[in-house]
């Protein structure tokens, strides 16, 4: 195992020749294969894939007490070894082993404790999007394409699994990259209407909102997510997500721009943006708030239309006899 971790092909070969058993695992259910993958030694991984029995991999990876070793793909992703990942996908391990999720423990969702409670499993695609967006930058698109083209699921079946579309929305910043990932996920059939947390708002939209990911919220609404600004704002207020971070202030400004129709929500916001605050941005928002207190008829109607059509808005827009500029307005292409 030590030889596998350090990538010493000759030593591994020699040990196997002398009868070392590649199917054995350490007390944490980690096998030599796991260590070779996580340290990115392509030739050793190749050799071990040949000699390790599939049943042993299956037994150790799915053991209830196995933690980090559950998903071989996540190990390759974590180490950022694209060649090892591709090798795993082309191996004969089978999709069951390849698609195994990892447990979402505190470290994966450290900034989102409230979501850590809701989701306890993370598929390789979600793992990639959740942990590697900032590290891999543009290269993440290559990884994502490899996984999706291999047939990794873009949607989840269990309530405790973190959907990829939610995972990608959890990180503000990297706007362009997130937008590309979302496009790719949607092209593979990701469900923007997947709803488990709050019955009024789909999970991906809610995740983007809680994370202060304004451009993500706008992108999801533009492609037809059915959540309404009122419901998003009410969720932020009632669950105590409003803080004075720039991301959250921008989020609230965006929601107001999209149109908040419920007057009672404004009074809650007036407590959120204290007038006496020394922060210029907060003061500006308070002034901005006063001018918006009576929602314009256009925004009221836009929200009524979106409420009426729900997730069918985008297909309905194709059919409706309304001018192009109005379609852009209703789909939030123009604010």
């Amino acid at each position: 195992m030590v030889a596998a971790q350090s990538g010493n092909l000759k030593v591994v070969e020699e040990l196997l020749k002398r009868g070392a058993n590649p199917d054995l695992a350490a007390h944490d259910f980690t096998m030599a294969l796991h260590l070779a993958i996580h340290s990115g030694h392509l030739s050793v991984v190749k050799l071990l894939l040949k000699v390790t029995s599939r049943n042993a991999v299956l037994a150790h990876c799915t053991h209830p007490k196995a933690k980090t070793g559950r998903s071989l793909c996540c190990l390759a992703i974590d180490g950022e070894y694209l060649d090892v990942l591709k090798l795993l996908l082309s191996s004969d391990l089978g999709n069951y082993i390849l698609h195994l999720p990892v447990h979402c423990d505190g470290s994966l969702l450290e900034n989102k404790p409230h979501l850590g409670v809701l989701y306890s499993e993370c598929s390789p695609v979600s793992f990639l999007l959740l942990t590697k967006l900032n590290d891999l930058k543009d290269d993440i698109l290559i990884y994502l394409e490899v996984l999706l083209n291999h047939g990794f699921p873009v949607n989840v079946k269990d309530k405790q699994s973190l959907p990829p579309l939610v995972a990608v929305m959890l990180q503000p910043g990297c706007d362009h990259l997130i937008s590309c990932c979302v496009d790719m996920l949607l092209a593979h059939g990701a469900d923007i209407e997947y709803t488990t947390i709050c019955k009024m708002v789909p999970d991906p939209l809610l995740a983007a909102c809680i994370s202060g990911n304004s451009s993500g919220v706008l992108q999801l609404l533009r492609v037809g997510s059915s959540g309404l600004p009122d419901d998003l704002l009410r969720y932020l207020i009632t669950h105590g997500h409003l803080d004075s971070s720039p991301h959250m202030i921008n989020m609230v400004r965006l929601l107001l721009e999209l149109g908040v129709t419920e007057p009672a929500l404004y009074s809650r916001l007036q407590q959120y943006f204290p007038e006496a605050s020394s922060d210029i941005q907060i003061k500006a928002t308070a002034a901005f708030l006063a001018s918006l207190q009576v929602c314009s008829l256009q925004k009221l109607c836009r929200i009524a239309v979106r409420r009426l059509f729900g997730h069918l808005l985008i297909p309905a827009m194709e059919q409706l006899p309304v001018p192009h500029c109005l379609k852009n307005y209703l789909t939030y292409k123009t604010l």
Binding site: S296, L297, L300, C301, R302, A304, R307, L320, L326, Y329
Partner: peptide
């Protein structure tokens, strides 16, 4: 806003 009127109304409001 009556939902059945919303589409006509958004046009005139615009």
């Amino acid at each position: 806003i009556a939902s059945e009127m919303s589409l006509e109304l958004v046009d005139v409001a615009n």
